[in-house]
Amino acid sequence: MILSIKDLTVSHGEKTIVDKVSLTIDKGEWFALVGQSGSGKTMLSQAIGQLLGPNLSASGSVNYQGANILVRPKTEMNELRGKAISYIFQDYHGSFTPFLTIQQHMDEYLQTHGVKEKQKRNSMIIEALESVGLDDSFVKRYPFQLSGGQLQRASIALALLLEPDILIADEATTALDSVSAHRILSLLQELQQKTGCAILFITHDWRHVVRYADKIAVMKDGKVIETGTKQKLVHQPEHAYTKQLIQAAPTLPMRVREVSKS
């Protein structure tokens, strides 16, 4: 077990957005959190890294290495983010500063996390970009010179630079078309197997879940209504809402065969 969330509640004034959610994520597993927009899944993911906005408050506990990181002081949390927990977001344009090159972004990231030698930083950057399929010509480029898929690759490279234990991907493929999305997802899977990091994958599209996830939780109106292994949720969903989600996503007939085989 790498991360255990207990009774996590996020509220905005009187309004409860995430309602007593408990989840455990094991080492190296792909944990998918599925729900529609407004279900609270993004707030949940942001609460884990203390990324919530100023009007939002979180209670409950998020246990990482035996300690509740929800109450960690800000400075320690900054250390932890990147090294232990890192994020990739849906808005890949917003994740990069337009006037810094990809290298400058990654270099600054490494510097703030205490990698002193310039040589080492450079080789780490090139290696990281290579691992996501971007050759060294991308190093000197500015964000606007990359396509959406390439930018999202770069943000994955950035997120995995310090080999975190858990990567939180919040709708990371939603803004991409399904072909690029698929490439990003298989890349993530490959990197996950290589580095052994766990992935908390947040999405609204059931189809992204079926192929890659090990475990699935379905979220609705701030609550986790059903959770279990992929096999269980795909084949014997209990909750009517889960069934609805499965049905809503269009599928090719072959996919059904494929799943029943596995």
Partner: peptide, 10 residues
Amino acid sequence: LDVLSQGAIL
């Protein structure tokens, strides 16, 4: 559109 509306629109 979100996933439930997608199916309904189709």
